[in-house]
Design a protein around this nucleic acid. Structure first.
Lengths: 228, 228
DNA sequence: CAGCGCAAACTTGTATGCAAGTCCGCCAGG
DNA sequence: CCTGGCGGACTTGCATACAAGTTTGCGCTG
């Protein structure tokens, strides 16, 4: 977590962003104890902004708080991971469907941007740059929602996706994403170019559920992050 | 809003539920000014639980708060209504797809429950009971997610659906839902019985976007609830 | 030595008080 | 009569203080 806080903005939002990013990146691993006074002194604010930030994180099921006992970073629940996969694949298939069935004036231009993102994604993959790969991965999937005319829906996906991200960060500590991920990205873009809704939807469904196939291995390596 | 508050539970949650229901049911119409001190005295609590409840409502975009100016019940943004329709239809079609492609042991039993709900829904419709109709409407759509094995995803739908609900409450002040809604409910159940994914998905998409078709009329009747 | 009990420390939940900023109305002047 | 400026009331954001409950560890007792 960074230490400098913007003076003009609301501290509550700043604390929320800091904690959210820290949990997402596993800097605060599942099970970490979060004491409100400790966080407050550590971030140089009072307990009030910390509490409001935690309340928002509780709504996203990123932290669990037991009254008069303590608050901890939530464990990675496989049920929530599966739900997140379902939500993500359903929404993205819906976006792809809309992108294909009603191509507007901006369709070709936005499709060009999507191709650029795919190229960058491919380049980071070949270079073995995990951070760059994930950044372009995010942008690529987000672009599908832009093409579907539902750009704001990406915020919902991003909010739900955090449980997947924690799992992926664990996975990526050992190995870069498999080549299948790269192939699927290419297939999604190609399906959009061909206006092929059916194969595009199939690819997205496979792509989104890939992480579940690897989950058993990850759980075996980091059992302390999963509930007993 | 009811007045009695449970003593044991957290007041913050109670305040949140009260405000959420009040906004959902248009008891607090869009644009209503919400003063933290007023709400606090009215609910016989301090400002802290009120603030935490409001923070949660801001995340759901149900209220807008401008620092040092005031907080108001959010207007009904058509962009959010359309996003909600998209999310709802995408998730429900996904659930229907899963319900059909992997029928488990409980499938027949849960399908029977779905039939019962449909029958009750039909009865309320014939009797002109709007409240009963909507209650069974909710249960019917929720049942689709149960059949799809993603029961918890309904919570996401419920959270997003609130913008649709406000619009529907406006619509229903004048007329009961059209017969088309009832027919579509029947068609959804029939598609599940026939394991017909394609027609089921089409019906759900039509059903979810029906409200948008009526939106112009509603906006003309209640312009003060929509942004300028 | 083992087990029980009490007390202190730490946790979250709530209330109150203070600070900073914005808006509206009143009052004086032209 | 109209207009400009100033002051008060009201708003949210933050910090501090108090209350209630749980856990843990130490000390006493059998």
């Amino acid at each position: 977590m960074s230490e400098a806080r913007p003076p003009g903005n609301r501290m509550s939002d700043w604390v929320y962003t800091e904690l959210s990013e820290a949990i997402r990146s596993l800097e605060l691993p599942p099970g970490t104890k979060l004491s409100e006074p400790s966080l407050a002194t550590r971030l140089a604010v009072s307990r009030v902004p910390v509490r409001e930030a935690i309340a928002r994180l509780v709504d996203q099921r990123l932290v669990t708080v037991t009254p008069q006992v303590g608050t901890r970073v939530a464990p990675i629940l496989m049920s929530e991971v599966e739900n997140a996969c379902f939500i993500r694949s359903s929404l993205e298939t819906g976006a792809l469907r809309q992108a294909i069935t009603r191509p507007g004036a901006d369709f070709d231009r936005e499709l060009g941007e999507l191709r650029d993102i795919l190229a960058a994604n491919h380049a980071f993959f070949d270079a073995g740059d995990a951070d760059g790969f994930f950044a372009t991965d995010e942008r690529l999937h987000q672009a599908v929602f832009v093409l579907g005319g539902v750009a704001e829906v990406w915020d919902v996906v991003r909010g739900v996706k955090v449980h997947l991200d924690r799992l992926r960060h664990l996975h990526l500590r050992h190995a870069m994403a498999s080549g299948a991920v790269m192939d699927e990205h290419t297939q999604i873009v190609e399906a959009l170019e061909r206006r092929d809704a059916k194969s595009g939807e199939d690819v997205i469904r496979r792509h989104a559920h890939q992480i579940i196939a690897d989950s058993d291995q990850i759980r075996a390596e980091y059992p302390e992050y999963f509930p007993a």
